[in-house]
Nucleic acid binder design. Structure first.
Length: 302
DNA sequence: ATGGTACCCTGAGAGC
DNA sequence: TGCTCTCAGGGTACCA
């Protein structure tokens, strides 16, 4: 599920419920996800007010009144959903220390539940579900967030104002790595994943195998290709955010509704279909780069 | 330094 | 129906 547009969609869905609310109780149902939870995870959350919810790259960040930041990453299969506060009887059944009985198969993967008491409005629960457990949560002091290993080396936010032809050409200068790998590198641009890299390369008619350092003219200026790529990255991400992200397999948004940008894919998961660029007679091929599928048109992407 | 590969984990879908 | 195999949106440790 989660590349930048999906995480942004989740952030926008959670913010109205989480911002300003107090965390009254936390159910942490296992000791680890991708990484172990901090040993004092629950204690540092309970009683805190959530002052703001934001996103950096593919991370969700909840600023707490204590000065901690709750850092959340969805990995491959993580999702949040918003539910009503439990009834009194269920609350009793799920009292601290009580064994949690999953009522459905998917519920086995509800790993964290935040019980929230909003300043005004009705109490709610925020439920984190993650079958593959590649996601994680941790707590980091606000003051040290930028220097934390998760964030110290993160690259540019692609929807900010800096991403343009000259920035891209400079960032990729001298690099022989394929464009596909360079765009997936979170240290350069933060937030792109496999889907949107494929889509951006298709839109800009650039081969995923092309060396990243070739986006310059002989005179050393950013090439037209660099401009197309920067624009393609911005446009595909902006359109995907507007569509509520892409929904593969099951669920997506926090209210259970689905993003619909997957219907706009031109390359990703379209192996064998004809290229949608006007006048192009090619079709979409699938290759493997860095262990992941790349979808592209070998005719018009050069 | 840079670039590939294996791996963490579970579930879905294809093919037999 | 059920088995086996492949693949999946991310990121990191380790190798050449």
């Amino acid at each position: 599920m989660p590349e930048l547009p999906e995480v942004e969609t989740v952030c926008r869905g959670l913010a109205p419920v989480m911002e300003g609310a107090r965390i009254t109780r936390v159910e942490q149902r296992r000791a680890d996800l991708r990484f172990p939870f901090p040993t004092d995870f629950v204690a540092r959350l309970e009683g805190q007010r959530i002052e703001a919810l934001g996103r950096r790259a593919k991370y969700l960040l909840a600023d707490l009144s204590s000065g901690d930041v709750l850092v959340m990453h969805l990995g491959m299969s993580g999702s949040f959903r918003i539910a009503e506060a439990p009834s009194v009887s269920i609350a009793a059944q799920e009292a601290p220390g009580a064994f949690h009985h999953p009522r459905s198969k998917n519920e086995r993967h509800d790993h964290v539940v935040l019980h929230l008491e909003p300043a005004d409005g009705v109490p709610a629960r925020i439920i984190y579900n993650d079958p593959r457990r590649f996601g994680f949560m941790t707590l980091v002091a606000r003051a040290g967030l930028e220097s934390h290993p998760f964030f110290a080396h993160l690259g540019l936010e692609p929807l900010g104002n800096e991403l343009d032809a000259s920035w891209l050409a400079k960032a990729f200068a001298g690099r022989t790595t394929p464009l596909k790998a360079a765009l997936l590198d979170q240290k350069v641009i933060a937030g792109l994943g496999n889907i949107y890299v494929c889509e951006a390369l298709w839109r800009s008619r650039l081969s995923p195998m092309r060396a990243a350092g070739t986006l310059v003219t002989k005179a050393g200026r950013p090439s037209a290709a660099a401009g197309r790529l920067a624009e393609a990255i911005r446009s595909v991400l902006a359109e995907a955010v507007a569509a509520g992200g892409s929904t593969l397999r099951d669920h997506m948004k926090t209210d259970g509704s689905l993003g619909y940008f997957q219907h706009s894919f031109a390359a990703y998961d379209r192996e064998g279909t004809s290229c949608r660029h006007p006048g192009c007679r090619g079709s979409i091929a699938r290759i493997v780069q860095s262990g992941r599928s790349t979808f592209y048109c070998g005719v018009c992407q050069r």
